[in-house]
Amino acid sequence: MQSSNIKKVLIVLTNTMQYGDKKEPTGLWLGEATEFAKIIQDAGFTVDYVSPKGGFVPLDPRSMKYVDDEIMDFYESDDFKKRALMNSLAPEDVDPDNYSAIYYAGGHGVMWDFPDSEPLQKIALKIYQNNGFVTSVCHGIAGLLNIKLPNNDYLISNREITGFTESEEVLAGKKKIVPFFNQNEAEKRGAKFMKKRAYSEYAVQDGQLITGQNPFSAKAVAKTLVSNFNKNV
Rank of each mutant, 00 (worst) to 15 (best):
S3M: 09
S3N: 14
M17S: 14
M17E: 14
G20F: 02
D21G: 02
K23Q: 09
A37C: 08
K38P: 05
D42N: 15
G44Y: 15
F45P: 01
T46F: 12
T46H: 15
G54A: 01
P58A: 01
D60T: 04
V67P: 10
D68P: 00
E70K: 15
F74I: 08
Y75M: 10
E76N: 15
K82G: 09
A84Q: 06
M86P: 05
A90M: 07
P91N: 01
D93I: 05
D93N: 15
Y104D: 02
V110T: 11
M111P: 07
P119I: 09
L125S: 07
I127Q: 02
N130W: 00
V134S: 05
T135P: 10
V137G: 09
G143T: 02
L144Q: 13
N151T: 06
D153G: 00
D153N: 15
I156D: 03
I156E: 01
N158E: 12
E169P: 09
V170M: 10
K174D: 07
K174R: 11
F180L: 07
N182A: 15
N184F: 12
E187C: 00
Q205F: 06
Q208W: 14
I210N: 04
N214A: 04
K219Q: 13
A220I: 03
T224A: 11
N228F: 09
N230K: 15
